[in-house]
Simulated assay, not measured.
Amino acid sequence: MQTKDVLAALAAIAQETRLAIFRLLVQVGPGGMAASRIAEQLDIAPSSLSFHLKELSHARLISSRNEGRFIIYSADVDVMNGLIGYLTENCCGGVPCGPTGCGPDTKST
């Protein structure tokens, strides 16, 4: 992942409503959710929702597809994993991380 892409993704989710939208879409999984259901679930006005969805799409954190007369949005797990990978790429000086932290001293016994 390029630094500019990482910055765009972090900037997109550094806002309360967009973070809530992204987290909701991660929770619902690859099937995604219609924009109207997102608005209903998070109590967001449709005009505001459109703006936030555009920002998340621009950052490539979500994708959309048409299903009949609905637009279905879903989190882009590959981009999310790329972002996490970029942020943890050099974690712990190259020592593999375990569930409780970095390095051999933090592994549970």
Score class of each variant (00 low, 15 high):
residue 37 R to A: 14
residue 72 I to F: 09
residue 26 V to T: 02
residue 42 L to A: 03
residue 62 I to Q: 01
residue 49 L to G: 06
residue 25 L to G: 02
residue 67 E to D: 12
residue 84 I to T: 15
residue 76 D to Q: 08
residue 35 A to D: 09
residue 75 A to P: 00
residue 60 R to N: 05
residue 85 G to T: 02
residue 23 R to E: 01
residue 61 L to R: 02
residue 44 I to W: 02
residue 86 Y to D: 13
residue 26 V to Y: 04
residue 42 L to K: 06
residue 77 V to R: 13
residue 62 I to A: 04
residue 33 M to Q: 03
residue 84 I to P: 03
residue 23 R to F: 01
residue 43 D to A: 10
residue 49 L to W: 02
residue 66 N to Y: 11
residue 82 G to N: 13
residue 43 D to M: 13
residue 20 A to R: 10
residue 81 N to Y: 12
residue 67 E to F: 06
residue 78 D to P: 12
residue 34 A to Q: 09
residue 61 L to N: 01
residue 74 S to R: 11
residue 84 I to M: 11
residue 23 R to K: 11
residue 48 S to F: 07
residue 45 A to K: 15
residue 83 L to E: 02
residue 74 S to Q: 05
residue 30 P to E: 15
residue 53 L to E: 06
residue 72 I to C: 08
residue 82 G to A: 14
residue 24 L to D: 04
residue 37 R to L: 10
residue 77 V to L: 13
residue 26 V to R: 12
residue 72 I to T: 08
residue 82 G to H: 04
residue 45 A to E: 14
residue 44 I to P: 00
residue 21 I to Y: 05
residue 65 R to L: 07
residue 68 G to Y: 06
residue 86 Y to G: 03
residue 24 L to M: 00
residue 25 L to Q: 02
residue 20 A to E: 12
residue 40 E to D: 13
residue 64 S to L: 12
residue 25 L to N: 00
residue 51 F to P: 05
residue 74 S to I: 04
residue 53 L to K: 10
residue 55 E to Y: 08
residue 32 G to E: 06
residue 39 A to T: 04
residue 76 D to N: 14
residue 53 L to S: 07
residue 52 H to Q: 15
residue 31 G to L: 06
residue 64 S to G: 07
residue 71 I to Y: 07
residue 59 A to P: 05
residue 21 I to W: 04
residue 40 E to L: 09
residue 77 V to G: 08
residue 77 V to W: 08
residue 27 Q to M: 07
residue 42 L to P: 00
